[in-house]
Design a protein around this nucleic acid. Sequence first.
DNA 1: TCAAGAATTCCACAAGTGAGGAATGAGGGC
DNA 2: GCCCTCATTCCTCACTTGTGGAATTCTTGA
Lengths: 202, 202
Amino acid sequence: MEARDRGTTRRSPGRRPGPSETRQAILDAALRAFSTRGFRGASLRAIAADAGVDPALIRHFFGDKASLFAAAVADGSDVVARLVGAFEGGGPDLGRRVADAYLRLWEDPETLAVLRAILGTVLTSPEAMPPLRDMMLASVAVHAPGGAGSAGVMLAASQLLGLAVMRHILQVPALATLDREHVVAMVAPTIDRYLATEAAAG
Amino acid sequence: MEARDRGTTRRSPGRRPGPSETRQAILDAALRAFSTRGFRGASLRAIAADAGVDPALIRHFFGDKASLFAAAVADGSDVVARLVGAFEGGGPDLGRRVADAYLRLWEDPETLAVLRAILGTVLTSPEAMPPLRDMMLASVAVHAPGGAGSAGVMLAASQLLGLAVMRHILQVPALATLDREHVVAMVAPTIDRYLATEAAAG
DNA sequence: TCAAGAATTCCACAAGTGAGGAATGAGGGC
DNA sequence: GCCCTCATTCCTCACTTGTGGAATTCTTGA
């Protein structure tokens, strides 16, 4: 609720004095909304209200709703950039490092919001699913050993995704209350086994 | 698209001759809609149109939108009943049996729709999340060894959930094109390991 | 045969939706 | 000091949403 107070107070039109940080405020509010309500459930008016701003400003800055969504998720996401860092170097404890990097990602509130927004939108507006999926797969493809076509890599991804959903979205107590190191320790062997299986099977 | 033709044709009001199967038609259409659009994204009018029926009939049969949702997911779900069958018996190949039963569940279109609807709604209307989550956890709690509070059981669940999402919702090719036996074979050891870890750690 | 109830329609309403146009104010370059 | 650009407001439009009332037709039971 970091909305400026504008209950019934009319604020005269025209530019405000000083530099404007409204664009960023809109992006933040948009991410919050898309992340909790999904693309369709988030309304431009609610986003504007949360940002303490007139709805028409959204149109002025971003055009239409889809563009705002794109801008909001792009804004909060060096997500993949941070994830793929974990794949650098090879080494023996690859599974452990990947799992740890991935779970850290979800612990960052902004990243969580981005991922929630994407997942919610994928589940809730079918026409958006293929492009979003392919975008995510493409980013994995370049960096994972074996690429996005590899069943082993995708099994590892499925374990991490499921874990993140249960831990950070559904917030299942048995997983949400455990500290990250503990979870990583239990999951790392799984990741390693999937990646090794892949290497063997081609 | 099994909607009756009612483009511009006016159909006179009043009861239709013969027995009425409209209630079920509405439930089916509702499940389709909730499953692809989420709770908020699915509109009563669209559901009614898909069922070939006047929107007011929905209100007549089910009251409000939330009750329709409840009825729709309850209608298509002996889901949990079918899943927990896999836990009966103990035996050595528990992981294999559970994974197989679970994946079969998602291959049934109606069950897939139910699960999609629940997941989409959970992600997209936060107020619905705790009740739905607790409902699912409660059903697991009674049947899984160790109950819903056990990290091992929940880790196994996370693997299965993530797998189902990537295979049947995102439809990632590397997993969606594999036959079930193959996937089960790769995943079963993971499940067994999690459940065993749990048994050891208490 | 008649009445009660259930199934079905249309129409209306108030609220909310995304989009767009017109006006007003401030900043910055000349 | 003037003008162009940008940030900001308001109001409007056409449309969709969930909900509700009133009327019509069929089925069922007495």
